[in-house]
Amino acid sequence: MDQMAEPRMAHPLVPRVAHVRRRWRDGPDVWTLEIEDGAGSGFMPGQFNMLTVFGVGEVPISLSGDPADGNRIRHTVRAVGPVTRALARLRPGDPLGLRGPFGTGWPTDALDGRDVVIVAGGLGLAPLRPAILQLLARRDRIGRLTLVYGARSPDQILFARQQDRWGRRSDIEVAVTVDHATSPWRGYVGVVTTLIPRAVSDPANTVALVCGPEIMMRFAAAALTDAGLPETAIHLSMERNMKCAVGLCGHCQFGADFLCRDGPVFRLDRIARRLALREI
């Protein structure tokens, strides 16, 4: 540990140094980094890390890999800003700064015996991927498992090959829809919420995990409650600007909650009122 040689006190805003092992493209402008995090201590599906490109800046990025992979972690980023573009340019062996994991996770340990509906939009599948992998690893403990996924267009489908593999399995149902179809597409066209009713067969015994753009989550929450799920069975991962990830900087407030500490995963009954407000 390089930085442990320095005299220091444990400041929660100081990153540890980790290194990129591999990097690959997962869609237009979307890259996944596999990182060797020697000081990692495991994570819960749904949690995030703060990633620093030295000299550029720091961003919150959810963990997208398998929690069973130990210190070999994955992050999937869309290169849209200065820091995410610099992250996407990192090569194997390059150093980066890491803090975390932070935040609440998906309630994957409380799903025994329940049907699980996973609703994801766009890059929102990234923080749900660890939950899916964990549930598949102990598949016999839950009931029906369905992934409902929406992307803007077929070429923007995240983890497309893995979704295909999941689609061929008999223990997970995968339904994918796109907003705009291009020529070879033979799947669904339309918003993701239209696929929700058929994913729910026993609403009283179903739990939903939802992540995507806020507007999509608002409509997904409505479709799930229309399908008969109680608000207490719907979990959403919210997004706000984050700087410190430890409840000190104030940026990620969502009503009284600090997203970094009290979220990002919330049960709908806790946030339903706020979710309906604009610019909150």
Binding site: D2, Q3, A5, E6, P7, R8, M9, H11, V14, P15, R16, V17, F54, G93, D94, P95, G97
Partner: peptide, 9 residues
């Protein structure tokens, strides 16, 4: 390729 982080005292 070696980066060291020096925390502010």
């Amino acid at each position: 390729d070696r980066v060291r982080v020096h925390a502010e005292p």
